[in-house]
Structures are given as C-alpha cells and as structure tokens.
C-alpha cells in the first residue's frame, strides 16, 4: 500500500510539474468553409495532412473539402459513418462504422475507405453493438463488439491479442471508464456513479480527458486520479500538443440550443480564451486542425478559425 501510494504521489507530482507555458493566444481569421446551399454538415475533423472531413445530418455519410478546388467531395452516404470516424496514421484512409436497421434493430459494420479512390473494404461484417474504431500509432485497428475489445493488425486481416498494443486505450461505457494497459482492463469511476462521456487519451498517452455528467470535465491520470477540474465545459478535445483543450459552451432551454460559442482552455484550467463571439451563430463541436479550430454551426455550415500561440 505504501509503495503504491508513493508511486501515485510521484506520478501526480510529475504531472503537476508539467510546464504549462503562459502562452498568449491571438485569434486569427475565421473562414466559413461551406454554404447553406451546399447542404447541412456537422462534426468536422481534420486528417493528419490537414484535409477537413465532416458528416451530414444524423451523422450520415462522410464528406471532405477538396484542397485543390475547395469543392465538397462525398466519400460515402453510409448511415452513422460520420460518428467518430478516424484516419489511418498516414492519412490515406478512413475507418468508420456503418449502421443498418433491420426492422428497428441497429446493426453495424466496420469499414475502411481509401480517400483517393473511395474504395471501401469491409473489416467487420454486420454485428450488434459495434463500437467506433480507433487506430493506434503503430497501425493497429481497435474496436469493440458488445464491449469486448478487438484488435486487427495493420494487414487489416489478422486478429491480435490486446497485449500487442504498446499504448493504452480508454473508453467510457455507461457509468464507467475502461482503461486498457498492456492488455489489462481497469474499470474506473473517478467521480462516482454517473455517466462518463467524451473520454479521450492525451496525445502523449499519459493522461485522459472526460466529462462526468453532473460534475463537469476533468483531466486525470490513467488511474483516475484527478489532475485538473475544468468546469462544465462540453465536447472537450485535446490540442495536438496536449497543452490546450477546445470545447463548446452550449446553452439550451430543454428543447433547442439557443446559444453556443467555442473556447480553448489550458489543461490546468488557468488560461481560458473565447474563440468565437457571435450573437447570431451557434458554433458547436470544435476539433483541432493543427493550430486552427474547425467546427460547425446550428445551420449546418463548417468554419475554421486560425489561432496564434505567442
């Protein structure tokens, strides 16, 4: 017990000593990337090469913005494909879940699509309770079926043991957070018995970020020890360097979201910056594209705002 405590204490101290530089943030130009006439889009995400992808209403289909001519290219029209799709580490393909309803019952497939050719490969045939995929930095494709973790090798065929993963996996399942390290699953309830959502691993794989319903957003280590409490901020997303977290502050009346703006906050919560400040635009679901934030609005248009860290 004493040893564990000491280890924990040192770990917390190391994390607390992480250099959180008091950077100045300047908000640069905001560009609207899509128009109303082009359709309604949401949840933009940037590929490793900086191409901006997004989905349609109800997370149906995946689109991207051509860097050559700024045209919107439809990759697919699959139901549910736009929900938490991920990119291969080289950015050439995209992994997503495709949903299908058989007499009201939801089934899903796991697919990979080559962005250039739109060629689609079925990685997991139709099954129940297929979770969204993840891609590890060493190329493994990770997903779960009925909350049981599966790993496929970079050849897209061979099934691997969890132990092959060199980095942790975190996911929230109902009222718990599951952390897999070296093939071992640890079940956490850092804030007690409540829903945990928007859980993600830090870019350096040492910490995690999550939202505990009724409690707010927190940064913790992988044992669930709280490092920073960030308040009731929604849809928190790590910046690529792990120093900042983007989020939205959406306000609703129980029926409709009446206002929302985008912010970033340093992971220690000490430095906060409002990125959008509009009265008539309801900006939601921000994510990072290197030093820019991309997000959608309630009308279904996609935006990008440049940030300068000085």
């Amino acid at each position: 017990m004493k040893i564990n405590f000491t280890v924990k204490t040192i770990l917390v101290m190391i994390v607390l000593c992480l250099p959180i530089y008091a950077q100045q943030v300047r908000v640069g130009e905001t560009m609207r990337l899509t128009s109303l006439s082009a359709g309604k889009f949401m949840n933009p995400k940037a590929s490793p090469s900086g191409t901006i992808f997004f989905t349609g209403e109800g997370n149906r289909g995946i689109y991207y913005l051509s860097e050559v001519d700024n045209l919107i290219i439809k990759l697919n029209d699959e139901l549910g494909a736009g929900y938490e799709f991920v990119f291969s580490s080289d950015g050439k393909s995209i992994f997503f879940r495709s949903d299908n309803y058989v007499a009201g019952k939801k089934y899903s497939e796991l697919k990979e699509q080559i962005i250039n050719t739109k060629e689609m490969t079925l990685l997991q045939p139709e099954t129940r309770f297929l979770d969204v995929p993840r891609v590890s930095s060493d190329g493994y494709i990770i997903f779960s079926i009925d909350d049981k973790l599966q790993v496929i090798g970079s050849d897209r065929v061979s099934k691997k043991e969890l132990a092959v993963l060199s980095e942790p996996i975190v996911k929230s399942v109902n009222n718990e957070i599951w952390v897999y390290t070296n093939g071992i699953k640890k079940t956490l309830q850092p804030l007690g018995d409540t829903h945990y959502i928007w859980t993600s691993l830090s870019p350096d794989k040492s910490n995690m970020l999550f939202y505990a319903v009724g409690k707010g957003t927190f940064v913790s280590d992988l044992n669930g020890n709280i490092l920073f409490e960030l308040g009731d901020i929604r849809y928190p997303q790590w910046s690529p360097d792990g120093k900042w977290i983007s989020y939205m502050l959406d306000i609703d009346d129980g029926r409709v979201v009446s206002e929302s703006d985008i912010y970033i906050i340093s992971i220690d919560g000490q430095s906060k910056h409002k990125i959008t400040n509009t009265e008539n635009i309801i900006e939601v679901y921000p994510s990072w594209n290197r030093n820019s934030l991309i997000y959608s609005d309630s009308e279904g248009m996609i935006y990008s705002t440049q940030l300068f860290f000085e």
């Binding site: 009201g104 929604r234 409709v256």
Partner: peptide, 28 residues
C-alpha cells in the same frame, strides 16, 4: 436514462443527453 433524478442538478445539457445515447451505442 439520461438523468439520475429530478433535482436542478439532474438537468444535463441537450448535447450531453445525446452524447450519453451515442456513447452507449443504443438501438434507439
């Protein structure tokens, strides 16, 4: 269930309620 009771602190934002459903991969 998207909330745990009926007090003022049991009133998640709409985005949170939807995220609970999405995260739990429910049928409906």
């Amino acid at each position: 269930l998207t909330r745990n009771g009926n007090t003022n602190s049991d009133d998640p934002a709409l985005s949170v309620r939807a995220a609970i459903a999405n995260n739990n991969n429910v049928d409906i």
